[in-house]
Amino acid sequence: MKKLINDSEAVVDEMLDGMLAAYPEQLRRLDDTEVMVRADAPVSGKVGIVSGGGSGHEPTHAGFIGDGMLDGAAAGEVFTSPTADQLNDMIEACDSGEGVLCVVKNYEGDVMNFETAGEMAAMEDIEVRQVVVNDDVAVEDSLYTSGRRGVAGTIFVHKVAGAKAAEGAELDEVERVANKMIDNVATMGVALTSCVTPDKGEPTFDLPDDEIELGIGIHGEPGTERVDMMSADEITDHLTEKVLEDLDLDEGQEILTLVNGMGGTPQSELFILNRRLQEVVSDHGLETWDAWVGDYMTSLDMMGASITVAAVDEELKELLSADADTPALTV
């Protein structure tokens, strides 16, 4: 499989340099790391919001650095959590003295490395909090799993936490709204093809032309179920029903929806899903307050999509629609 790369080991490094070359005024890369921060970090008087995780999910994470969203983002190797020392460097660079909130997706690697980093930062007297996003309803949260994964709903958490911090709120408050968002968001995804990592150079899993994977994560993992290919409407119905079942919302509830592309999906197809999604949620008596469509949290070149629904109240709506100015999202 062909890729526009020079060397599979240099992908993350060169990607970050190319990103910096595109946004030289907004971004700064910490020396000798794969950490990107706001050019003006730390922003004095503001709680720092940081995130990070494996690479391959672009525009996540660094694409959401900027006013009203993230102060820093650490990029691990493709699909591999960043290391604790780099996470610590990031936390230090984003702390203005008001403390730092880490938005972590629920993967054991991410959680363990962020925890270690948090301990290291605490030793430097930085107040660090962690919120763990686990919006993926495909994976049951039970004793028999390591919990639900964090996927596309993470973007909403970045947005809400970033907006609250931009208001000048304290760490406690920022953490509270982030957790409120986490408690109210659910996602489920589908893959039509596997992604190809630069390192392996071949599809992570084989998926015949008449089958799809339901309940995939964002790391090229196989999903929870392999089924026969279905129409866009059938797929949307299936994903949306699972998501709504999990959220169990009252009629009339206002919601924010996201149809997220996995990287290799034409935008036209995402809109075809959105068309059906809006029919389904309206059939459930829900009120769409806003609908996002696009590539927010990808899996390299995977063809597929995820559907996210979040219940929103006045507070969340205000934070979600507050100004943001980042490479990947301008509100």
Binding site: S81, T83, M112
Partner: peptide, 12 residues
């Protein structure tokens, strides 16, 4: 290893 592996196996 902590600073070069990452992922779950790095801290482990």
């Amino acid at each position: 290893l902590i600073s070069k592996v990452g992922g779950a196996s790095g801290p482990l």
